[in-house]
């Protein structure tokens, strides 16, 4: 049995003045239309959202109606949308469902993400210190530089993704040393939805899921190997093993990196680049979509990577692609999905 990506829907990514339900409805109806299925044909819904970003005790309460979950089963993941995709695929592979909708949303214009993520760390050992996703990423970047990481490579990645000169990156304001403003992807608003099915009659666009993996590292930052990124490595190994692929079989990768050095670290951990990360800068096979730097919200970024990877297969740009999502401080969790055309 194969899971197929049958429909893709998304909003424009940017500042959005609509309410969250209005925004999510657009992405969901676009995905249903793209797949040519009605809401009645959806067996189950998996949503991804983060309460802190939505300012709700349970952000999923906002969207039950607009994702079409009334009187259906709805599972909710408080990680990146790529993790929701993996769970939805597992549901289909169980043989108990035929068609599942995956939805991710966030509005990062509604609050200061760094102020919010400061509350997402362990309250006993780290919360009072002011650690957040930005400072965790800065510590990771500094640890990488300590091991011989090349600051110019970091500037080059950001420059390529943003379409600016490396000097412009290197002269942008410092946000948390060693990170500068342009080392970070723009955080915006939006929603993305995918229709997954194992019913071949509904699989109109011929994109199959060949492998997937999911892995989480310990939470305490000092326990982690911030440079080796073992969770990304293990998630990739799981996916490669499931697909029976080697890394060189992959023609294109879509990586979720909110910070420039993370694209280098994760490209390497996913075994797609040399140790200096140079292929990530020079090769066109990494994040042709622009990746997170094209402007994505938290949570949506990973599902959007999968959507971009599926579109690369649809348009014939590549036949075998890898899509990646991550979440938590300095990428505590990672999800890897391998997609293939003509399955």
């Amino acid at each position: 049995m194969t899971v197929h990506v049958a429909g893709i829907g998304r909003t424009r990514y940017g500042r959005d003045e609509r309410s969250i339900p209005e925004m999510v409805y657009e992405a969901v109806t676009a995905a249903l239309a793209d797949a040519g299925v009605t809401r009645d044909e959806i067996d189950s819904i998996v949503t991804a959202s983060i309460d802190l970003f939505d300012g709700k005790v349970a952000s999923s309460v906002l969207i039950t109606e607009v994702v079409g979950a009334v009187m259906k089963e709805e599972a909710r993941v408080a990680d990146d949308g790529a993790a929701a995709f993996v769970h939805a695929s597992a549901m289909l592979l169980s043989g108990r469902k035929e068609t599942v909708l995956v939805v991710a949303h966030a509005k990062n214009s509604e609050a200061d993400a760094d102020a919010l993520t400061a509350w997402s760390t362990d309250p006993i050992h780290m919360q009072s210190l002011g650690l957040n996703d930005l400072t965790a990423a800065a510590l990771q970047a500094d640890a990488w530089l300590a091991q011989g990481g090349d600051p110019d490579a970091m500037d080059a990645v950001a420059a390529r993704r943003l379409g600016v000169a490396p000097a412009e990156v290197a002269s942008s304001p410092v946000i948390a040393e060693p990170l500068r403003e342009k080392h970070r992807a723009p955080l915006v608003d939006g929603a993305c939805a995918l229709v997954l099915t194992c019913d071949v009659r509904r699989a109109t666009c011929d994109v199959g899921v060949s492998g997937m993996g999911l892995c989480v590292e310990p939470h305490y930052l000092g326990d982690r190997d911030l440079i080796g990124c073992p969770a990304a490595q293990k998630a990739a190994e799981q996916a490669y093993r499931m697909a029976g692929w080697r890394p060189e079989d992959v023609q294109l990768v879509e990586i979720s990196a909110q910070f420039a050095h993370q694209e280098i670290l994760w490209t390497r951990a996913l075994r797609f680049a040399e140790d200096d990360g140079r292929r990530s800068v020079d090769g066109g096979a990494i994040n042709p979509s622009g990746g997170w730097f094209a402007g994505n919200p938290y949570v949506v970024a990973g599902l959007e990577r999968i959507a971009c990877a599926a579109e690369a297969i649809r348009t014939g740009t590549a036949r075998r692609v890898l899509a990646h999502g991550c979440w938590g401080p300095a990428g505590q969790g990672h999800a890897v999905v391998l997609l293939e055309g003509g399955r």
Binding site: S19, A111, W119
Partner: peptide, 18 residues
């Protein structure tokens, strides 16, 4: 016990319906 006061702020969009 460790005590924190969790200070949070959002600028929420009521949207067209509301």
């Amino acid at each position: 016990y460790i005590r924190h006061r969790m200070g949070l702020a959002w600028e929420m969009s009521p949207g067209a319906t509301f």
